[in-house]
Design a protein around this nucleic acid. Structure first.
Length: 304
DNA sequence: GCTTGCGCCTGAATGC
DNA sequence: TGCATTCAGGCGCAAG
């Protein structure tokens, strides 16, 4: 599943292979891929044609390409927002190329330079594209501050890699909540970019159980798990970045990190790398949580 | 306002 | 063998 590190790898790929190119034609093959573009797929196709893709940006798991303005004004006023959902991929393919990914091709962009097309492939269709206005984030108030985000991203919190991420403020916001720690880590309005896998890994590193009530946690404990989340995602990014291929913007979630470096996620019954106790699996919000029974004892009055 | 739970979707894995 | 069920997951929205 694409989480922050995978999305960042894609962003970097787009920066190299898509930025600066002008769209000749956009085709949406599956209406669900454009469901977040409220005026519909035809409108999206029409409005993308002729636009030049500028910088690739990211916040949490949201990715967007700034677009040249209609009247060549500066700065850009719109962006093509891409969310990969659970199975989304952006691939670069030579024009006319067809392969197994073709079956789940949901949209494609052809370019005026006749170079590789940009494919949006998404098996489970939880992802999608939208063209949106750029707005000023709620926490940006300085008059000369030019930072913008797409409208649908405005409610998403900054991620731990954002230069303006304020860890101390996030720790306090988290402790004010009345919920379970893992739920809070997954809440993209508190801190973005953390999904199920990295939440479990961060909790394991911080030796905290995900059902611990947030309001009972100490400031240092919450800080520890936030720092762990950043560390584990940073390591995944370092590994994912190495598998980048010039003609394949890798987002398949199968980066080496998944195979080699997970301590607890998906490791039911395997020994905890720290103490050797078999990793347990718990049902959580219609999905799974993995933890070490010894390093991460369940709280008596837990809150999943 | 804050917290919780559901539905969206497909294909692999599992159960009968 | 074949059919049915379960599961995975992020996100938006409705309900509590």
């Amino acid at each position: 599943m694409p989480e922050l590190p995978e999305v960042e790898v894609v962003r970097r790929g787009l920066e190299v292979h898509a930025a600066g190119r002008t769209v000749r034609r956009a085709v949406v093959h599956h209406p669900r891929a454009a469901r977040r573009h409220l005026p519909g797929a035809a409108d999206l196709e029409r409005r993308l044609a002729g636009r030049t893709l500028l910088g690739a940006r990211r916040r949490g798991k949201y990715l967007w390409l700034e677009l040249s303005a209609d009247l060549a004004t500066d700065p850009p006023e719109h962006a093509l927002v891409v969310h990969l959902g659970m199975s989304g991929q952006l691939l670069l393919r030579d024009p006319g190329f067809r392969d197994a990914g073709h079956r789940h091709l949901r949209a494609e962009l052809g370019f005026a330079d006749d170079g590789p097309e940009l494919w949006f492939v998404d098996q489970r269709t939880f992802g999608g594209l939208a063209l949106e206005p750029l707005v000023r984030p709620a926490d940006v108030t300085a008059p000369g501050d030019a930072e913008t985000v797409p409208a649908s991203v405005a409610h998403i919190a900054r991620d731990p890699f954002d230069p303006r991420f304020e860890a101390e403020a996030v720790v306090e916001a988290l402790r004010r909540r009345h919920t379970g720690l893992k739920r809070a880590l997954l809440d993209q309005t508190l801190v973005s970019g953390i999904g199920n896998i990295y939440a479990d890994e961060a909790l394991w590193r911080a030796r905290l159980h995900g059902a611990r009530p947030t309001e009972t946690l100490s400031h240092p404990a919450v800080r520890r798990v936030l720092d762990a989340a950043k560390a584990v995602m940073g390591e995944a990014l370092a590994q994912g970045g190495t598998s980048f291929d010039a003609l394949y913007v890798n987002v398949n979630g199968e980066s080496g990190y998944f195979d080699r470096s997970l301590a607890v996620y998906g490791q039911t019954g395997r020994p905890c790398p720290r103490c050797g106790t078999p990793v347990r699996r718990d049902a959580f919000m219609n999905r799974s949580s993995f933890s070490c029974p010894r390093c991460q004892p369940r709280p008596r009055a837990g809150r999943w």
